[in-house]
Design a protein around this nucleic acid. Structure first.
Length: 635
DNA sequence: ATAGGGTTAG
């Protein structure tokens, strides 16, 4: 709204005597009488009376841009008011008409009018018109706010390439960017699909410092984000630590930076620091930190977080509670996960997906499928993530029929082009031994999807190795899981040379430090009876997990080094490592083979204690052990 | 502006 005074001075400054103007009430043009403007109450009242309400405030919507037979008595200020009227009514069509008229009237070069149109076009998303107006402005009048307007327009439309081009043009034309400029530019860089090299980000950083904007909060926050998104989290940390003033977003940016770069421990330490500094945690903080503790399975910390979240009254936040559902699911506390789920006042697709994937992963496939039914009854639509989890559940259940239903659901919903859905579908058919469908599916899919090769490689055992060669013949690069699976396949047929060769290839491909490949190598040596090499490979792994240990135990057990296998099993026990069903299976089998009833019984006791006695693999071998014939041994 | 869920592996 514009005050009465502005309109007054507007009319005073205009030489409008004897001209025709549009009368808004009569809806027709009238000619202004020959009277002195300073005392021209008639003109003022003529227009103003119609435009003012009781509170003497001007409503632009009453003014309509149909000023006829204009000879130029109305200046740009008047047109700016008219433009405001178009804007307040949101009528881009009117604005465009007016623009056309102004151009014919010769107002095109007027900076203020141009800037206003720029604003209108950017706000309405008509960026090509915006760009036209921008280019038609005399270059001397294009100040940084014009540039920023244009930048923010393209940034909102996610045209990041244009944003970056405009930015470099801006620098070339010697316009000084301000914090708004960098805020948009950094945002565009972060959203861009293209990865930035360290040098790229550093150059942007240097520019920021050159223009003296290093202390601006929004700039630093986005810089932290940009460094992190491209994997340079240590530089993010540097920026964060150099900040004199931080706001809540700075902490969140740093937290999520650590989370994005698998630095969960750092994220958790940062959270503790943040609390020490007395920063009030936001939902963003809790969803990030909870997710970080999920990833490293820090269940105790997760419980503490749950308590804090409750204390801050943030359980009603969907993001936060979803993170909690995932936390409890992944740590195996499905009852707690279900409890959080049940108490959520609002649920979204991710809420369902979190619990469904948790149930599927932990073997509660039936429950996962039931929850899927429930989800369909609610108005929420299952998506790729839902289907992928459920396909996993079906694969482990061997539920081919249900899996096929999901397949047709996914086809109807248009989800089948998703590469992860493809992977889990193929895995379903392979695990359910529907070789024909699996083969057809594989041949009909994109060759570049390495997961599909891996699924085939694993599922087809020895045949898999041939496929692995074929993959290489096609020039498709394998990934760490492909190499690991191929090496394991070699282990299975005790093809040491071939396995070593593939390992050498993986090193050439840059996977020399990969965990999965290291574990596979342990298994290869152990399975081929190379005890010392196996231990050497084992020692090379810096963070040994149960799979590393299993490589030794099951490898030795399968190659007939039963005592060795049992020794490793005892060591594992002493080291306080949690065995799983594969470990127990191999250990019991080793004990059975050398009829070591005493150790067999000990293992049995632990199996019962850990609840793995429901697992067929260990139980079957226990029965074998029983058949070895020790009296009094009962399963 | 910054946050949560999915496939292959022994």
């Amino acid at each position: 709204m514009v005050s009465k005074r502005i309109i007054h001075s507007l009319f005073k400054s205009s030489d409008c005597l004897g001209k025709e103007i549009w009368h808004f009430r009569y809806r027709k043009p009238i000619r202004l009488k020959n009277c002195a403007l300073t005392s021209c109450a008639s003109i003022n009242s003529l227009v103003l009376d119609d435009c003012l309400d009781e509170e003497n405030e001007y409503y632009p919507s009453i003014v309509h841009p149909r000023v006829t037979k204009d000879n130029g008595y109305l200046d740009h200020t008047y047109y700016l008011l008219l433009l405001d009227s178009c804007l307040s009514e949101g009528s881009i069509v009117d604005a465009k008409k007016l623009h056309g008229k102004l151009l014919t009237l010769g107002f095109g070069a007027d900076y203020r009018i141009g800037a206003r149109f720029l604003d209108i076009y950017v706000a309405s998303g008509d960026l090509s018109s915006a760009l036209q107006v921008f280019d038609s402005l005399p270059s001397g009048t294009r100040n940084e706010s014009c540039w920023n307007l244009l930048l923010s327009g393209f940034s909102q439309m996610k045209r990041n390439d244009v944003v970056l081009n405009l930015f470099s043009r801006m620098i070339r034309e010697n316009v000084s960017p301000d914090e708004c400029t960098f805020s948009e530019v950094l945002q565009a860089c972060s959203d861009s699909k293209v990865a930035f090299s360290f040098r790229d980000v550093e150059q942007i950083h240097a520019l920021i410092m050159r223009y003296g904007l290093g202390s601006k909060l929004i700039v630093s926050n986005r810089l932290i984000d940009l460094y992190s998104k491209n994997g340079f989290v240590d530089s993010s940390k540097q920026v964060f630590e150099d900040m004199v003033v931080r706001d809540s977003s700075s902490w969140v940016a740093m937290l999520s930076g650590f989370c994005k770069n698998k630095r969960e421990e750092d994220a958790i330490l940062l959270y503790k620091d943040m609390r020490k500094f007395g920063v009030i945690p936001t939902p963003y903080v809790f969803s990030s930190v909870t997710s970080a503790s999920t990833k490293i399975e820090a269940f105790n910390l997760g419980e503490q977080l749950h308590a804090s979240i409750y204390k801050w009254g943030l359980l009603s936040n969907v993001f936060v509670s979803n993170a909690l559902v995932t936390l409890y699911s992944r740590c195996g506390y499905l009852t707690l996960a279900e409890q959080v789920f049940a108490e959520m006042p609002q649920k979204d697709g991710v809420t369902y997906n979190s619990l469904i994937s948790g149930l599927s992963l932990k073997g509660f496939s039936d429950k996962a499928l039931q929850l899927f039914e429930k989800m369909q009854l609610s108005s929420l639509k299952p998506d790729c993530v839902t289907i992928a989890s459920l396909l996993g559940a079906c694969a482990s259940l061997g539920a081919l029929q249900k899996g096929r239903q999901l397949h047709s659901y996914a086809t109807k919903a248009g989800l089948c082009s998703d590469s992860i859905i493809e992977g889990s579908l193929l895995d379903l058919y392979v695990k359910c031994s529907d070789i024909e469908t699996a083969h057809k599916f594989f041949l009909g899919s994109q060759m570049e999807n390495t997961v599909l090769w891996n699924v085939m490689l694993v599922g087809y055992g020895q045949m898999g190795l041939k496929l692995f060669r074929k993959m290489q013949d096609h020039g498709i690069r394998s990934d760490n899981i492909g190499f690991a699976s191929a090496i394991s396949a070699c282990a299975g047929i005790q093809a040491l040379d071939q396995g070593q060769q593939i390992h050498a290839q993986s090193v050439v491909s840059g996977y020399s430090l990969d965990h999965s490949i290291g574990n596979a190598l342990i298994f290869l040596y152990a399975r081929c009876g190379r005890i010392q090499d196996a231990y050497a490979a084992f020692d090379k792994i810096d963070t040994k997990d149960i799979i590393s240990w299993n490589g030794l135990v099951s490898g030795f057990a399968q190659s007939g080094f039963y005592e060795e296998a049992l020794q490793v099993f005892s060591r594992l026990h002493e080291d306080g490592v949690e065995a799983n069903m594969f470990t127990y299976g191999s250990a019991v089998s080793a004990a059975a083979n050398i009829t070591n009833i005493k150790q067999g019984k000990q293992i049995h006791a632990r199996i019962v204690k850990t609840g793995y006695n429901g697992e067929t693999e260990a139980s079957n071998v226990l029965i074998t052990l029983l058949q070895c014939g020790e009296e009094g041994f009962r399963y």
